[in-house]
Design a protein around this nucleic acid. Structure first.
Lengths: 250, 250
DNA sequence: TTGGCAATAGCTGTATACACAATGCCAAAA
DNA sequence: TTTTGGCATTGTGTATACAGCTATTGCCAA
């Protein structure tokens, strides 16, 4: 009908676009990672227009991403203000850890998949990478290693509903975990290596049940750590001293 | 810059708007209910513009709702086609039921809340309503009663993460449950009454653990039913004979 | 009569325009 | 100097315009 064709778009920077899965799934993952790695700390205000420009899209896809993140419990959108990164509530996180513990026990009970050499060799590679973290303090690499560990474990879960939930909670607790990593680096590197070693040992036996219990026990370890954070026994923040820990949700 | 102000909006029918919670949350719940009650059967194509007009809003809020429903696994949006109600996969539903069974066992393990007379009397009212279903075949009422039962049970769950998940899965399996109700009405009414009676008895004792096990056992009952559906022992569809059960995903 | 292709209608995906809400600043009055 | 009220700025919420994709249908040729 109308003849206006040479408007503005179709020549923007297509930085992240269409590389990953369906659409702006990659944007979602990118922003989620920024939140989990505390690059967007709790209380930070994200503006739709700002991120829209950065990723070279309009506000619409960014809003979609925000909505998903809100369902994940990572942000909270308030009219007229912005989209705010939620503070993490150590008490609620303890709830989640408590549940994750129980879910880990279920991995091997609900039609587990057999673990193969493929899984074991994957873990061995991760162990190699993890061993190099001792001096470097490369938090991004730490995150990525843990990520892939999670992916391998998830692939052993036969029950699809359980697997989805297991992933969901992993991202929900990601920030708390990362916080602990940041405060006590050396201990955490050691803990990760120990976890990987235990997993490899269990996988050598081809015993998914054993893998599940290793996960359970390491989750238990982190849960204990959270308890010590709550009681004030451990320092809570490392930079800027602001307390992100009082949850702002009403 | 331009001065077009008297376009069209600001005088539309505001049917559902702003009555419920935040925004178009009520639209979400309405459409979800239509899907769960099979008014939008699997394979049905929902069009954004259509529903937008019905609810008197633009496509934007409807798209938000669809996105949420997609996360719930109830619909699937395909470019250029529409938003399609997913077929339910009995096998996957069995996975979900298997997990729900285990979760029910956890209710009383993870900081359960004490159950009070308030809970018991609520259940008694539901039992009264349920008893009247025997002759009437009022599926909507059945749905509502079950809904409130779920709400009361959820309020006994102390662990917030568990509670959220328990609700999530309830809606995911809602359609399968409803399907079974539709095929064997009288048995299902009887089963609901029995469940409510058991719950009341457990609540009279103030024993949340007992409540949890009642739930577990009734879930187990439904899971067995699904098994019989899968094996073909029970008829799968009641109307139009179309098989909704071959999942159309990908 | 049938198979293939092309035009088309109708839908979602994206961008943008506009309305409303919240917050901070500044000025005026006590 | 302090307090308060109004206004400007800036953000999200919603509506709409436009672009791209899909399925269908009708036409033409074999």
């Amino acid at each position: 009908m109308s003849g206006q064709t040479e408007l503005t778009h179709t020549k923007r920077q297509r930085s992240v676009r269409k590389q990953g899965g369906s659409l702006s799934k990659s944007i979602y993952e990118e922003i989620r990672e920024r939140i989990c790695l505390l690059r967007y700390p709790p209380g930070d205000v994200l503006r739709e227009a700002e991120l829209a420009e950065e990723f070279g899209v309009s506000r619409t896809p960014i809003r979609q991403v925000f909505q998903k993140l809100e369902i994940d419990g990572l942000v909270e959108t308030r009219n007229g203000v912005g989209t705010i990164v939620t503070g993490f509530d150590f008490v609620q996180m303890k709830d989640v850890y408590e549940l994750r513990l129980k879910l880990a026990e279920l991995i091997a009970q609900l039609s587990p998949k057999p673990c193969s050499d493929f899984h074991r060799s994957g873990m061995e590679q991760l162990l190699n990478r993890a061993a190099q973290l001792k001096g470097s303090r490369d938090t991004g690499e730490f995150w990525r290693i843990n990520h892939e560990r999670q992916k391998i474990i998830a692939s052993l879960i036969g029950n699809t509903a359980l697997r989805d939930m297991y992933d969901q909670f992993y991202y929900q607790t990601g920030r708390v975990w990362f916080q602990m990593v940041d405060v006590m680096w050396d201990d955490q590197v050691e803990a990760l290596c120990a976890e990987l070693r235990d997993l490899i040992r269990a996988m050598e036996l081809g015993d998914t049940q054993a893998v599940a219990y290793v996960e359970r026990n390491h989750l238990s370890f982190y849960m204990g750590l959270i308890g010590r954070f709550i009681s004030g026994e451990l320092p809570k923040a490392d930079s800027s001293g602001s307390n992100w820990f009082v949850d702002a949700r009403e």
